[in-house]
Simulated scan of single mutants.
Amino acid sequence: MNYFQRTLPSLDALVYFEAAARHLNFTHAAAELNVSQVAVSKRIRALEQHLGIKLFDRLGRSLTLTEKGRRLAAKITPSLSFLEEAIDNVRDRSGTERQVVTIAANENVNFFWLAPLMREFQLSGKDTLVSVVTANNVTDVIDHKTDLAVFHGRSAPKGWQVHVSLPEQLLAVTGPSCSRADEFTLLEYTKESPDWVNWSSLTEGQIANWFTNVKFRYCTSYIQSITLAAAGHGVALGVLPLLQRELRLGELQQLRSQILTSDRRYFVATPNGRTPSAATREIVELLGENSTSTISY
């Protein structure tokens, strides 16, 4: 028998952690949760004590996820979505039926793009439950329940109707307080999929157009590279449309004016032979409206 109360922290602590990990800012997380910044800080500290590990590295006002914090964050969002779906399935809705939209995406797409948008979508009072399932290879988690998928590559798989097609654009990004990019380390990461682009994928000439005196610091994931960049510990290879929110909020800044366009794209698609529900169409429109291939300052 599982005695979850002996091993699991409180649900509130996990909800607070998910928001803090997504924003990398306790104040922004507090605003989303409608609580004080002190409340978020206390819950995170209590969670760290419960687990016996550090989840965040704190450098002044900057936050970065530790490796274990990153691993927990990658699991918490889909787990909370699954729990929300389970609760909703047994809730008395007075005869109304709530629509469920299941989305398949890779971890990076979900962490930076889908999760924030879907949370705002559901907090806006929409009577739709969104469930996101993730894997490095999106096709590994697609089944008959999948209503929508976000693919990354040169083309979408056969059997899918593409509704939104966005170019992948690459730019150098770092934290808001950094300015002397020539002295920074480039934050490299191991590609989770052959289609992903990292610093090593670029030619020496392309990198030289941005920086001189290049040195590298290796990260365990793309998420960690962006987390470290936001804290001012180097320069990450930013990807649009994934990082639009962070750039818009000033959590990241673009270095240099050059933007490279890769030969990959992001495809928002639905299965052929199935008419998308009204809720699915609404989410497709939301993803299209909140995606742009250029940055406005």
Results as ranks from 00 to 15, higher is better:
M1G: 10
Y3T: 05
Y3K: 08
F4G: 05
A13Q: 13
A13E: 11
Y16W: 04
F17R: 10
R22V: 02
H23D: 13
F26A: 05
H28R: 14
A29E: 09
A30T: 01
A31D: 04
E32I: 03
E32H: 07
N34D: 08
N34V: 04
V35M: 01
V38E: 07
A39T: 11
V40A: 05
V40K: 01
K42Q: 11
I44N: 03
R45N: 02
A46H: 07
A46T: 07
L47S: 03
Q49Y: 00
H50N: 06
G52S: 00
L55H: 02
R58T: 12
R58Q: 13
G60Q: 03
L63K: 03
T66Y: 00
R71E: 14
I76W: 05
L80A: 13
I87Y: 05
I87M: 11
N89D: 09
E97G: 04
T102E: 10
A105N: 09
N108K: 11
F112M: 09
L114E: 14
L117A: 10
R119A: 14
T139E: 14
V150N: 14
H152P: 06
G153F: 08
R154L: 04
A156W: 05
W160T: 08
W160G: 09
P167E: 11
P167Y: 08
E168A: 06
L170P: 02
A172Y: 03
S177Q: 07
E183T: 06
L186T: 00
L187H: 07
E192T: 10
S200Q: 15
G205A: 05
G205I: 00
N209C: 08
W210P: 02
Y218M: 06
C219G: 02
Y222D: 06
I223Y: 03
S225H: 06
I226G: 01
G234V: 07
L243P: 01
Q244F: 02
L252Q: 12
Q253A: 14
L255H: 14
Q258N: 15
L260S: 10
Y266I: 12
T270D: 09
P271I: 03
P276Q: 06
A278T: 12
A279T: 02
V284R: 11
V284C: 15
E285A: 12
L287P: 13
E289A: 15
